Amino acid sequence: MQPAVEHAIEAMWDRYEEPLTLSEMAAAASLSRFHFSRVFRSLTGTSPCRFLAAVRLSKAKDTLLQTSRNVTEIAYEVGYNSLGTFTSRFTRSVGVSPARYRQLSRSGMPVPLPAAVPGARGVVRGLVGLPEPAGPLRIYIGAFDSPIAQGMPVACDVLDAPGRFRLEGVPDGAWFIRAAAVPLRDVDPRPWKRKPLFVGALEPLHIRREKTLDLDLELHPLGLLDLPVLIALPELDSAELPEVVERVIGSERRTHPRPARSERPAPRASVDLLTSPRCA
């Protein structure tokens, strides 16, 4: 079933701007709606509609960095018919507003360390491993409240090589551990090109206060089944290259001029798949 689901995900990346229904996504996999939803969730950890929503926001991130188009135009281009919905969802998922995200691409941004919360919390610690030798890497690890790496993690750690990590102050509850590794050598100064080489995931861990959970986290090469990383890192962790980034971004944007107002895509009849009954 994996090739069928991968074919559907390819369709999402190719047709993200269209108001795709669950039936259309299932048809791309040559499966019934029910069977497709069940298999898709088992392989990706989330529903087809939430995966598509993540793809759209990932595309919006790239477009914000590569072009000078305004936020309204980008919202329509990635399949939203409401600027307010797009902006609020982008801000909640990426951690900053679309305009701030574009601004930070020129200077980089610090690792978002969660604020300390009083009271006894749990600890998740362990060893990060790679399936194959690789050059110098920076590895981001965080605990999130959903399968998608989005918003502010409740705890995080950053390593400059595979090794031991530690997530402090994890609240009681079920948390998803997500990791992404990017190269530290020959870094492309264009932030939209700074995609993870390896990713890792642990399905919900049930954390209890004053308890320490030991585990190993094995990374694997980024593949079609892996959810996009929506949080602003790692692509904006480029503060060491601000002048080069600004020069390259400015050059790239000049080659992607803003389209005339008449060329803006028309609003779509039904695009918000997270609330559409067709994707329940």
Rank of each mutant, 00 (worst) to 15 (best):
A161H: 02
A99L: 11
A75M: 04
R138W: 01
A201Y: 05
D160G: 03
A174Y: 02
L236T: 02
A201T: 15
R106P: 02
R106D: 13
R208C: 01
A4N: 07
P171W: 02
L52H: 06
A149Q: 03
C156R: 01
V128M: 05
M12H: 05
F144A: 11
S276V: 08
T91P: 15
T72M: 08
Y101I: 12
G79M: 09
V123E: 11
A149E: 10
L230R: 00
S42H: 05
L52K: 01
M152N: 14
L215M: 12
Y140E: 05
D272R: 06
F36P: 05
I148F: 01
P259S: 10
F86H: 01
L113T: 14
A27M: 12
M1Q: 10
T212H: 02
S105V: 13
R254E: 13
R178K: 02
R56M: 10
Q2S: 09
H35E: 15
R125S: 08
A29E: 06
R38Q: 15
R89K: 07
A116E: 14
A161V: 01
A155S: 13
T67P: 03
S276M: 10
L167H: 01
A280I: 11
L52S: 03
R253V: 13
G223F: 05
C156T: 07
A134K: 00
F90I: 13
V39I: 13
W192D: 13
R268N: 06
Y16A: 10
R33I: 12
M152D: 15
E203F: 04
R166H: 04
P3I: 15
D172I: 12
R178C: 10
K193R: 08
K195A: 11
L64P: 01
G79S: 07
P204N: 02
L233E: 09
P265S: 04
I139H: 01
L213Q: 05
P196Q: 03
D172K: 12
L274N: 04
L215Y: 00
E243G: 08
S47V: 10
L130Y: 01
S93M: 09
